[in-house]
Amino acid sequence: MDEMKILANAIVLGASALGAGAAMIAGIGPGIGEGYCGGKAVEAIARQPEASGAVTRTMIIGDAIAETTGIYALVVALLLLYANPIFGSLTSALEKFGG
């Protein structure tokens, strides 16, 4: 019984680490989006240097919006690593199974 518990815990630990890594693949999206946003801002400032203040402000807001999905992925990854909700259900399932 003890060995099975350890095995189950190990599987959940490993799968959670893999899941956290896989969740962070979402970092690609914000990376592309923010890069595009920054590039366009540089173009705009090159064309109209006097508007650089307004362009930079808008760019930062756009970056923040683009970053949202990345932050969601980060929150999921952090949950899996540090506040894993799966362990709770695993413990109750093992108790039910093992009696």
């Binding site: 923040a64 932050i71 969601y72 980060l74 929150v75």
Partner: peptide, 16 residues
């Protein structure tokens, strides 16, 4: 939701 998680996520990411 996105505002709360954005600030939280950035600060926790820095801490981690």
């Amino acid at each position: 939701v996105s505002m709360a998680l954005r600030l939280f996520g950035n600060m926790v990411a820095g801490m981690v």
